[in-house]
């Protein structure tokens, strides 16, 4: 690939910024949540601490959270673009970001237990590619910590224990259950990504891709937008609050998407992303030059 250095440098900047600089929509969400909690309450103290943390990470150019997570890259490239070269430039950028302390040594060999010094290994980072009929490259990055990854859940409807049938009321019950069982773990107030349908694997993929949506957007499918609204209200009523230590703000948002399914399967998949919602993106030229930020 030509301009390999340019690509590495742009991707490094994307990683650095994702690690240290919480997106504006999420910070606004935290501020709004803070106002809803009582003064001198634990919930308010936690949210104030989180906001202080956001500012410090930015000022000190240091990771928002020490768990710099799994790195998931979503690329949209022009038709015929050389994605292999993009993978190798990204790996170089990840290794450099690790060396400079923007990423923790966070990749473990699952068989030997050995820690990887560069965060570049089989399955790390993760890549998705899509070809688009335009002349620029869009790249989005999610850095998803392990604490919130561990509280993700997949339901298969009907679910008798929840009284959840194969309809949107059943989906609502699954999501409520996911919020209740995630509490105290996963670092609330987080955001839920939900996928209705798909299979065991694509359900999780689709639920995670919901995190690429902006916090204040609404589903373009009216009925799903209504379900998102209702569930967010109900999550407040559960009195779980930040970190599960009581209060209103168990969640900042709920994003629901859907995929087709086969007649025999009806999965509802819920992914949880913590308040340290590290998601950034950029439009780059085909030479890897920076054009603009997406978030």
């Amino acid at each position: 690939m030509k301009n390999h250095v340019q690509w590495e440098s742009s991707l490094f900047e994307l990683i650095r910024r994702t690690s240290v600089d919480l997106p504006c929509d999420i910070e606004q969400g935290l501020r709004r949540a803070c106002k809803t909690e009582k003064k001198a309450s634990r919930a308010r103290w936690i949210l104030e601490t989180l906001l202080e943390n956001v500012q410090k990470a930015r000022d000190k150019d240091a990771p928002l959270c020490q768990d710099t997570g799994s790195l998931i890259f979503y690329f949209q490239v022009p038709v015929g673009f050389d994605t292999n070269a993009l993978v190798s430039a990204t790996r170089l950028a990840v290794a450099r970001a690790t060396r400079l302390g923007y990423l923790r040594q966070n990749t473990i060999d699952s068989v030997s237990g050995a820690a990887c010094a560069t965060n570049v290994a089989y399955g790390a980072p993760t890549f998705y590619f899509e070809q688009c009929a335009r002349g620029t490259v869009d790249v989005r990055l999610l850095m998803k910590g392990g604490g919130c990854e561990n509280v993700g859940k997949q339901y298969s409807l009907p679910d008798e224990s929840l009284g959840a049938g194969r309809d949107l009321e059943g989906v609502r019950r699954c999501v409520l259950d996911a919020v209740i069982s995630a509490q105290g773990n996963g670092c609330a107030p987080g955001i839920l990504g939900v996928c209705i349908g798909g299979d065991r694997a694509t359900g999780y993929e689709c639920s995670k891709s919901q995190f690429l949506r902006k916090l204040d957007d609404k589903s373009s499918v009216k009925i799903l937008a209504r379900l998102e609204d209702r569930l967010l209200k109900e999550s407040k009523a559960l009195e779980i609050g930040p970190m599960g230590l009581g209060g209103n703000a168990a969640l900042l948002g709920i994003k629901i998407g859907s995929m087709s399914r086969v007649p025999a399967s009806f999965f509802v998949t819920v992914s949880y992303m913590c308040w340290a919602f590290r998601r950034r993106g950029a439009v780059l030229t085909v030479r890897g030059g920076f054009k603009k930020w997406l978030y």
Partner: peptide, 10 residues
């Protein structure tokens, strides 16, 4: 406080 890695690192 989970995730408050900068406040707590200080």
């Amino acid at each position: 406080v989970g995730g408050a890695a900068q406040v707590l690192a200080e």
